[in-house]
Simulated assay, not measured.
Amino acid sequence: MAEYKVSRSAVVDAPAARIFEILASPARHPEIDGSGTVRGSLFGPPELVQDARFGMDMKMFGLPYRMTNRVVEYEKDRLIAWRHFGPHRWRYELEELPGGGTRVTETFDYSRGFPLFYVLGGMPARNARGIEATLVRLKELAERG
């Protein structure tokens, strides 16, 4: 059975707390977004916590839209995940490495709901490219401090 997840990892030369601070700030999401869809933060707390709601200004395939998200998984400095009205999730896991740095794993989990829609629409490959670009941007921001 297919897993219906797209996941990529990168090692960032920064502590998990610094990386998490970026991820937990909706205002910073346009800076790290590698998919080109996140345009701006509309509302929400300055720092995300469990069950926090936040709104984003988005654009995909040339069409602008707005999205409200809710944090559904949260462990400070280790894990954060959110979802919108659909059941799929964007998830970031942070693992500090013994030799220094932090492994960041971003996962787009589309296993809930109607995963075949995403497969037929070519979304797994598109999401993989977006995740790879996001991790590069996140790495650059976190390593600059």
Rank of each mutant, 00 (worst) to 15 (best):
F43H: 14
F43P: 03
G44A: 05
G44V: 01
P46E: 15
P46A: 13
L48K: 01
L48W: 01
V49N: 04
Q50L: 15
Q50H: 13
D51H: 11
D51R: 11
A52N: 07
R53K: 13
M56L: 15
M58L: 15
M58D: 08
M58T: 11
K59T: 14
K59C: 14
K59P: 09
M60R: 15
F61D: 15
G62T: 11
L63H: 10
L63G: 01
P64K: 09
Y65N: 12
Y65F: 15
Y65C: 06
R66C: 12
R66A: 15
R66V: 14
M67L: 12
M67T: 07
M67S: 12
T68C: 12
N69W: 04
N69F: 09
R70P: 01
R70T: 13
R70Y: 07
R70W: 07
V71Y: 06
V72T: 10
V72I: 12
E73R: 03
Y74P: 03
R78G: 03
R78E: 09
R78I: 06
L79I: 08
I80T: 04
A81G: 06
W82C: 01
H84L: 02
F85H: 09
F85W: 13
G86H: 10
P87Y: 06
P87I: 01
R89M: 11
W90N: 00
Y92P: 03
L94Q: 02
E95G: 01
E95C: 05
E95I: 06
E96T: 09
L97T: 04
P98D: 06
G99Q: 15
G100C: 06
G100Q: 07
G101D: 05
G101M: 07
G101F: 02
T102R: 02
T102Q: 05
T102Y: 03
R103T: 04
V104T: 02
E106F: 07
E106L: 08
E106M: 11
D109P: 04
Y110V: 03
S111I: 05
R112M: 09
R112K: 14
G113D: 08
F114R: 11
P115Q: 08
P115E: 07
L116S: 13
L116V: 13
F117V: 10
Y118H: 11
Y118R: 04
Y118Q: 08
V119A: 12
V119K: 12
G121R: 14
G122F: 08
G122P: 06
M123Y: 14
A125E: 14
A125R: 14
R126T: 05
R126Y: 13
N127D: 10
N127T: 08
N127W: 13
N127E: 12
A128Q: 06
R129S: 14
R129Y: 10
I131Q: 01
I131S: 01
